[in-house]
Every structure is written in structure tokens, then in C-alpha cells.
Design a binder for these strands. Structure first.
Length: 336
DNA sequence: CTGTTCCTCTCAAACTGAGG
DNA sequence: CCTCAGTTTGAGAGGAACAG
């Protein structure tokens, strides 16, 4: 039910009036109150009694889901039968919540693209409000990191990519004490693990650079530079070949064979580690053998290490060795 | 029966927003 | 800017309930 602003103002005014129970409200009083309110808000000077009657009808009815218990006493005084009733205290309906939640999800995806300052705050407060109204307890936890640094560069970078501008990025990596300056041709933005990354070509390095937005200090258009078109990779294939975002442009996909114990097998099967994941073998004890065809990178190693003792890398040998080294080192750290 | 109040229904004018 | 469709609003007719 689409409501216009005037109607909302009138309904809110009527609700406020009916709450002031020390006064008796006739239809004419309500009309006058709405007229005053509308004049304040919108500069509208006159509304008819009929309009107020229609508003009361609307409040009583199910169109808005209010079901307001408005009764008429002594044939002319309007009041709420339940003194505690207020349309402003009504919980949102399940449908309202569902629609709001999905709208919030969509907005959140574009969070970083908005130029409005403080928008994350508004979203967070709105979400909090919605969840509070729903059950006084947050029941859905969505993985977000609205406070993430660098999100303010997102829309800026997006523009540069679309306009094919060469850019200058000031950057400080986690393991570097001083700032670096990159001259880049930006190609695409990718989100991974709640962090945003820029993939761009660096002429100096003659390679594709992957730069986390949260390590960026400044981004601007490189007025003197020239934009190098992306002839290096097909974005959809490039990103599909790996877990995460970092890779050497020259590296090739490799077949990774993994043994997964019975405990974790169902989880890995229902949530594949990568789109190339295939089930190779099911053992009698419930453990399984999987294969992946991916670029070997740090993110893959982290993913495998995340499963701890539940996964064993069979091949390739290099990866098996690196994982073994990491686990051995970890084990020695824990020895008393 | 009459008058009053509340409510519903209908109609037309005014307004609003989308699209050309 | 104009047109057009849809919505909102105001006005009036008339019915139901009820008191006097």
C-alpha cells in the first residue's frame, strides 16, 4: 500500500492526538490538528473532515496492518480503546522484515559505492532497529565489516576503471615501513573474505598487481600516464582459477589432490573449497579423496591449514611440503 | 418520527511521476 | 516541455444505529 507523505503525517498526528487522553478529541479537533501539522510540514492549509475519516478507516483496517482500536465515545469523542496502543510501537510484520532485510542486503553490497558520508552508520542503526523489533535478539549474523578501511576508495576506483584512467596509488603494505607509490592501469575490483582488492597492471613491474584497498593511503588520476588496456587476462577466467585474489600472472593451474577425514568430509562436500573441486574416491572409513584444479597461492594454503589435521595434501609435492612445514612449525610452537 | 453521528460509496478534480 | 495513467482528495448522497 503506497502511502504519500501527507497521509503519513496525518496518521502520525492522529496517533499523537489520541494518545493525549486528558483531552477529548472530536473529528473536528483531529482535523484541525492534522491541518496544523500539515501546515507546519508542507505548508498545506486545508483538509476536509472526510479525509480524516478516511485516515481513521485506514488506521483501523488491515491495509497498513495497524488494526488500531479506535472507538467513538458518546457519539463524538475519538479515542484508543487500549490506552497503550500506538502505531509507532507496532512491530514490523514478518513480511516487512523480510523485505527490509533483503533491501538492506542489496544496499550493503553497494555500500562502498555510495558517496553519502556516514551511510554505513545509518545502515548499521537501521539494521539494529529492525533486529531489535523482530525478537530483541539478533538471530541472523551476516558477515560484514562496514568499518573496513579503504572502502571510501571503492567508488573512486570504480570510476577510474570504467573511464579507463591511469591512476596513482599511495600504498603501505603490512610488512613495509615506508609508503610505496604505484602507477597503475586498474582493471577490476574483487571482494574476498570481506576485503576489497584492486587488480591492476603495473608497467614498472610488467605484471598484474593485487592491492588491498585497506592498505591504500590515496588514489588519484595519473594525469601524465597512459592507460594500458587489459590484454593480459580474461577477468572471469582469471579469478575463477584460484582461491582468493593473489597470483603470479604467469603461474599455471595445478591439480591438487586432498585427503579429507570422515569428520570433515560432509562439510567439504557441501561447501566446496573451489568450483573445480571433484570427488575422486570415497573410502570405507568415510574419508574421501578430492581433486582441485587451481593456482597455488597463499589463500589456498590458508584454506587448507584452516582444516588442521582433517585434511592432508597428497599432491603436488611442493604444496604438500609447504603445508607440512607450516604445521610442523606450529606444532613446535605449542610444545612446552 | 426526527435529528445526529458515523460510516460507505461514488464521482470528479487535482496532483504526481514516468516517459517521450 | 507535454501527455498519460494512476493516486489522492474533496464533496455529496445515502444507509445504519441510536437517543429523544
Amino acid at each position: 500500500m503506497p502511502l504519500n507523505r501527507n497521509t503519513l503525517i496525518r496518521i502520525r498526528t492522529i496517533d499523537t492526538c489520541l494518545h493525549r487522553r486528558q483531552r477529548l478529541w472530536t473529528l473536528e479537533d483531529l482535523r484541525q490538528a492534522c491541518e496544523d501539522a500539515l501546515y507546519d510540514y508542507e505548508g498545506i492549509s486545508s483538509i476536509s473532515t472526510r479525509t480524516i475519516q478516511r485516515d481513521i478507516e485506514l488506521m483501523r483496517g488491515d491495509k497498513l496492518g495497524y488494526y488500531a482500536p479506535i472507538v467513538v465515545k458518546d457519539k463524538k469523542y475519538y479515542t484508543y480503546e487500549d490506552p497503550n496502543f500506538s502505531i509507532t510501537q507496532l512491530p514490523l510484520t514478518k513480511q516487512d522484515l523480510a523485505e527490509l532485510s533483503s533491501a538492506m542486503d542489496i544496499i550493503k553490497h553497494y555500500n562502498g559505492f555510495q558517496s553519502m558520508a556516514g551511510q554505513e552508520d545509518i545502515l548499521a542503526r537501521m539494521q539494529d532497529q529492525i533486529q531489535t523489533q523482530e525478537s530483541h535478539q539478533q538471530v541472523i549474523f551476516i558477515e560484514t565489516n562496514a568499518r573496513l578501511k579503504g572502502l571510501n576508495f571503492l567508488s573512486n576506483l570504480y570510476d577510474h576503471i570504467v573511464k579507463k584512467n591511469p591512476i596513482v596509488v599511495d600504498y603501505r603494505s603490512f610488512n613495509s615501513k615506508r609508503n610505496n607509490r604505484f602507477y597503475l592501469s586498474p582493471y577490476l575490483l574483487k571482494e574476498f573474505n570481506n576485503r576489497w582488492f584492486l587488480l591492476a597492471y603495473s608497467k614498472k613491474m610488467n605484471d598484474i598487481q593485487t592491492i588491498a584497498l585497506d592498505r591504500m593511503l590515496a588514489v588519484s588520476k595519473d594525469e601524465k600516464g597512459t592507460y594500458v588496456e587489459n590484454t593480459f587476462f580474461d577477468p572471469s577466467i582469471y579469478l575463477d582459477e584460484m582461491v582468493g585474489v593473489t597470483r603470479d600472472i604467469h603461474s599455471q593451474k595445478e591439480v591438487v589432490t586432498l585427503w579429507v577425514d570422515a569428520d570433515q568430509a560432509p562439510y567439504v562436500l557441501t561447501k566446496p573449497m573451489h568450483s573445480s573441486q571433484r570427488l575422486v574416491q570415497e573410502n570405507e572409513d568415510g574419508s574421501i579423496i578430492l581433486s582441485l584444479e587451481v593456482i597455488l597461492n597463499l589463500e589456498l594454503e590458508r584454506l587448507i591449514l584452516g582444516y588442521g589435521c582433517h585434511i592432508e595434501v597428497k599432491t603436488p609435492r611442493l604444496l604438500r611440503h609447504r603445508i607440512a612445514q607450516a604445521i610442523l612449525l606450529a606444532a613446535t610452537r605449542y610444545q612446552m
